[in-house]
Amino acid sequence: MIVPLEHVLVLALAVFLMGAGCALLRRNLIMILLGVEIMLNASGIAFVGSSLAWRELHGQAFVLFIMGVAAAEVAVGLALVVYAHRRTGRLDADHFSKLRE
């Protein structure tokens, strides 16, 4: 006997919203990537909790794939950050507006 599933879902929801706020409000490129990681982590919590509630392994299998996708995303994302930093010397997302001009 642990807790109702609702509490797990509320925890995942709160963590997801914090990650979304981090990805949307922060101007630093690395913090935006960090927010995406937090959101993926929150969805993992919801998947594992639901997997336990329904006694199905599909949720846990999906968390495995989420980890694979997160690893790929962070590799390409951080390579882009390094590339942008070498090109301009800045990390501010407001600074990358070359297409607008």
């Binding site: 006997m1 642990i2 109702p4 599933l5 909790g49 336990l52 329904w54 006694r55 392994l57």
Partner: peptide
């Protein structure tokens, strides 16, 4: 109420 209702039982895969 999601799932089976009530509390999650301990289990391990």
């Amino acid at each position: 109420p999601a799932g089976t209702g009530g509390r999650l039982e301990l289990a391990s895969a």
